[in-house]
Amino acid sequence: MSLLSWRERLTIPTYDNEEYATTGRLFIDHELCNGCGVCAQICPGKAIEIRGEGREKKAYLEEVFPQCMSCNDCAAICERDAVTAAVAYDFGYYFKKLNRGEFRKPVPY
């Protein structure tokens, strides 16, 4: 048995179909976030946007098919540790991700 079926191997996914593609997902703690916008500036997929005014100024993940690749650069640069990426992207079919699990920090075995 191969890891991808013939159908999956031959089918190139359409890029914005949420039926079989999952995008990367961020979790932003809005109690910690102060809307400084550094994460939005460095995001390689421009998936984070800053909305609101004054104290309500917070970072949000784009709602319609964000191009988040769960690289976690936003989590690394955030001074307040308000952001974490916890869901990996998977475009399904030919671009399906294999043998990957949940997110963990490096382990000193």
Binding site: A75, A76, I77, A86, N99, R100, E102, R104, K105
Partner: peptide, 15 residues
Amino acid sequence: PYGRPDGMIEREVME
């Protein structure tokens, strides 16, 4: 770099 981008993050575990 602008700010402090370096740091340990979480990654997918791998089989």
